[in-house]
Every structure is written in C-alpha cells, then in structure tokens.
Design a protein around this nucleic acid. Sequence first.
DNA 1: AACCTTTTCGAAAAGGTTTTCGTTTGCAGC
DNA 2: GCTGCAAACGAAAACCTTTTCGAAAAGGTT
Lengths: 343, 343
Amino acid sequence: MSTEPEIPVNRAATLTDVAKLAGVSVATASKAINGRGDVRAATRQRVLEAAEMLSFAPNALARGLLGGRTGTVGLLTSDLEGRFSIPILMGAEDAFGAGQVSVFLCDARGDAIRERYHVRALLSRRVDGLIVVGSRTDPRPPLAGPIPVPVVYVYAPSANPDDISITVDNVGGGRLAIEHLLACGRRHIAHITGDAGYQAARDRADGARAALADAGLTMLDGKPYYGSWDETWGRAAAHIVVERHPEVDAIFCGSDQIARGVLETLRDLGRDVPGSISVTGFDNWEAVAAHSRPRLTSIDMNLEQLGAAAGRRLFAAIDGGDLPRSDQYPGRLVMRDSTAPAQ
Amino acid sequence: MSTEPEIPVNRAATLTDVAKLAGVSVATASKAINGRGDVRAATRQRVLEAAEMLSFAPNALARGLLGGRTGTVGLLTSDLEGRFSIPILMGAEDAFGAGQVSVFLCDARGDAIRERYHVRALLSRRVDGLIVVGSRTDPRPPLAGPIPVPVVYVYAPSANPDDISITVDNVGGGRLAIEHLLACGRRHIAHITGDAGYQAARDRADGARAALADAGLTMLDGKPYYGSWDETWGRAAAHIVVERHPEVDAIFCGSDQIARGVLETLRDLGRDVPGSISVTGFDNWEAVAAHSRPRLTSIDMNLEQLGAAAGRRLFAAIDGGDLPRSDQYPGRLVMRDSTAPAQ
DNA sequence: AACCTTTTCGAAAAGGTTTTCGTTTGCAGC
DNA sequence: GCTGCAAACGAAAACCTTTTCGAAAAGGTT
C-alpha cells in the first residue's frame, strides 16, 4: 500500500522522476543539479543521490529547445576520402570534445546540392555553428542562403573576405623548405610539384621563389615542374631534372608522394641522397615519409592544430567573443634523413 | 494600423509564424507541411507558400522531444587517425545521408574513459542508435552500462556474442589471396605479415593455410613470418625468405605496406616481379598499391560497404525490423601488375 | 427548410527542462 | 507574541511541434 515514487522502467529517467524520488519539485531538482539558485545543501544532496540512482541524464533536446543553445555544431566536409580533411576533423572534434559540444559530421562529397541539403538538415537541428572544411586551398563559394549561425571556413577559405577563414600558409611552407635546403649549403635547387591548377602548388612555388631570391638565387629552369601529385610524376620529373641539370643538388617536392617517386629515381640512377642531392617532401604524411629510403624530410602543415583553431574560433564567434576574422597558420619542418649539409 | 502578421526578424521562423502568415492554425500548418490529415488543397498551397516565404525549417529538437525519435545516431570511433575507420565512417554516413538521419561523430582515441564520456553525451542528446567502430578486428568489450538504444559494432566485434557485430572475413581474405596465387601456377608460397598479436594477422594466415591445404600444399616454413605492418619489416623479411628459399615463387603479404617493402627488396635483388615471383598485398590502400613498381595486386576488404551495412543494420534495429544479428563481409581481389601466371 | 454525411479545421495536450516570481518557512530582534 | 527578513522551495510559463478529437462548415438529399 505504499505510495512511494516508483522507479521508471524501460524509459530514460526524467527530471520529474528524480524530483519525485527526492521528494522535491522539478524546479528545485533542476537547480540542485545545475548548481543554480538557492537550495539547501541537504536537499541538493538528496537530489543528486536520486539522480545518481536513476542514472539521470538531462534531455539535451528539451534544454536546447528552451535556451536556444544546443551544444552542437555542424562539420561539413567536401571530401572525407582526402587525406587533408581527417586531421582537421580530428583537431576540431578535439577542441569541442573538451567542452560540452558534440559534432555533427556531414560529407558533401564536393556536391553543391548535397551541401545545401546537409546545411538545411543541420540548421533544422539548430546547431550553434558550422565549420566548413575544404579539400583544396583554393577559395570556395560561401554557403548559399541566409545562415543564422556563425560559420568558420577551414583549409579552403571562403571567397567572401568578410567570412571567417582559417588557412594554412603555403607560401611560408615553400619558404621553409627552401631555407632549410639553403642552410644545408645547396645552391642548385629544383622544384617538382603537382597540378598548377591548385592554389597550393602555386603558393608553395611562390614561397620557394621568394626564399631563393632572398639568397640571390633562382630555381633551376626558373620555374617549377608542374605535373600531378603522385609518385609516378615524381619519378618521371626526377629523370628530366637530372638529365637537364646534372649539377642539381637539391629537389623541393610539392608532396611526399612526389618526393617518394623522386627518391626512387635517384636511387635507380645511383645518386646519393642526401650526400649528393637533398630532397624534401610536403605534407609530412607519416605513412609515406617515414618509410621511404632514406626517410623523408618534409613540411608538416599542422592540420590538426588548424582544426582545433577553427573549433576555438567558432566557439568564440558563438559566444560573441571577438577574435581576428581570419587567420593563417604556418607549417613546420620535420627533419629526417633525406636532407643533410653537402659533404 | 494594419494588424497583419509580421515577418519575424533575426530569429528562425517557427510554425506559428507560418500559420499566422497563412491565416490558419498551427495544427493545420503542421498537417499541410507534413502531408498528413485532411487539409484542402488550396489551404495546403497557402501554407506551403508561407513556409517558403519564411524559409521555414521545422525545429528538429521540438520534433524529437515529442516523438521520441530524433533522427540522429552516434558514431563512436576508437581512432580516426587509422586508415580503417575512415572508409567505414564514410559508408555509414552515406547510408544515413540518404535518409533523414544525421551523424554525431565522436573519437574516443582508444580511451575507455573518453568513450564513456562520449556515450553519456550522445545518450543525453537522445540519439536513436549507436555505431561503434573499432580499429582492430580483435573483439572489444561492449559498451559499459545500460544503453537504451540499439548498438552496432563494426570492424571490431563486441566480445558479447549477443550484440550486433559487422566484421570483415579475414580468413576468406587470406583464402582469396592464396587461391589467386595458386591460379597463377605458384607452388612455393611464403606469407609475410604483421604483428601476431592481431587477430587479423592470425585469421589471414589461417585462411592462407587452409587454401594451401586444399591444394595439398603448405606455406614455406610451415608458418607465416610475423613482424610489424610496415615497409621496413617487408624489406627485411623478403631478404630472409629469398635467402632461405631461393625457390620461392610467390609472397602473400599481410598489408600493402609490407608488400611494398617486399617489392623493393626483390627489385634490389634483381628478382623479376611478377615474372619469377608474384606478390599480393592486403587492404588495397590506393595510395600505396597503385603507385608501387609494379602496381600491387591486393585484397580489398570493402570497408565502405561494411560501414554502409552497419548503417542499414542499425536502421533496421531502430525500426524493429529483424536482420541477422551479426554478419561477415567478404573481401575482393583487386588485380594489378604484381601477380601473373608463371611464364 | 431540415437533416445527414463528408470534409476541413482548430483547441489543447504532450514532451522535458529552465527560469521567473511568488509563497512559505525559519529565525532573530523587539 | 509580533514584525521583518532572508533563505528555501514550488507553481507555472515558455520553447516548438505533432496528434487527437471535437466542432464547424460545406455539400447533398429529402
């Protein structure tokens, strides 16, 4: 005949359940759990015990419905397949994971229709903000339509300069590589890189040219060997370079895969790396760079850090804090065995 | 002095706004938009126009709060970094993207504490289900605590056989590789693979042994060369194999990276691939397999398909449909240039 | 014009939480 | 014993959508 509050079964406990069990009103239970308002220590204790007993977890939907803040953000990538989105995604996920924020992941696959569809879905779920991750560093058109929440573009900046964009400093990356080769005493430096249609390729080349100019030098042939980003091109281009310029003593490659191909050709030709020729890659793709012969010196663009920065930046935008609208992040040189001072 | 309904500013339009603008009640507006209930064609039209004008998107939070179904699932990975999670994640994202479901992504980083934290967060957001993606094929402990929604384990099965697990058939994969080598007329087959602590390594070896036994053969040395999964081990092991067994005419490698190392050693030693020795890899990691010399024949585990299957399976579990509790997916052989019939 | 049927629409409740504000309780001071 | 005050607590509204059920309107028949 007891009229004690019953423990709910087969259904997540609600605040009402907790309140009943603790013998207080829902209002008090809420305040006790969130540490707000005036509630006696003993009462708070009772409520917390009840919550524990029912393994109560507040319904984020109801909370979001009320406060306007949902504690969720949308992360829109244009290609998950690519190597670049992943570290960025990890960084962002990390930056949020520390707080109370969860991440909605959407892959638009480079399709504008799909992108719009995903944006609609995200907005209907009332995300607090959006992160848009591109797969190339070329500027991309901003999201279509009115977006009622802050947006941060990462890797690929928005074409609209008023938007918030976080990008990598490819010019600086190119500089970094050349400066390292120069520091190794190299003077006859070629640049083999990917598709000239990529802003990244052009930027890295620009950085390289500038660094060489600072030293009163030019790159062999005066311009980069543009091609594709893979090993096959690296192998072919290395053949051309060595044939045309037997004096070459360093090759700056636009990707680790290209560099890997270059290394293979040099090995085939019996050229000593790093003794007679130094080689640097780009991207610091561990799987490629750390297992080549010799292991590859490369430029790491700190993509994970980039993603984390985007997360923090979005956070600030949501909270109304003001950080600089846009930011460029430098890379860093990772030294391995494919570069060394000329002997 | 008009009392016309006003268009809301600076705030997402609600159903009430739409109803006001269309001159109907919220109930009717809801029915018109969702195509439910009886509503005159003309009225429906008016409502839809109003919704369009305000670019109304229903608040998924309110909807979820009501129906118990939120249209969200949690995807818990143990390491985003690894190559295996990504295709699975893509497949799952794809399986859901087609419907009305959004994916919460969480990376537990192989940390049980972090995993519990993420599970709590996901449950408080009232996800309809969970997908748990492992990074190894070894069984993993099931999620701790009572989980009030369906869970599907992918790649790494749950240690509890009552849970739903979707895994790859590594034994079959090993079989596939050996059968291909046998079909090429090879008889002296070695197996170089990764860490014996990995179930995947042992399973593939078992499949290989079984396929060889069916042909009345055994692998060289009667057991695999266990080591690590990278190129360095592949290079070293290939030296050992060739030295001990000059008659070797095929090597089945446990990963594409190992295979790549094997190819390099064979090249160094002047052995003709695929002429005198055929080599197969495993994983079909495009970046590695498609650019080696010669291009690498490999086993593709169809991870993307695995992820999609997991998505569908979870969907069925949520909707109460009944599919088999667990499933194993076979791989497929991807032929390139590193295997050919003996000349 | 009265009556019945069918169609269309609206009022209200439900879902779980937070917040506001009014009410109660306990206690000190006179 | 009464007043005044602070602390503690609870009732109710708000957030937005969906669904149920009853009411009203429209249309047709006698």
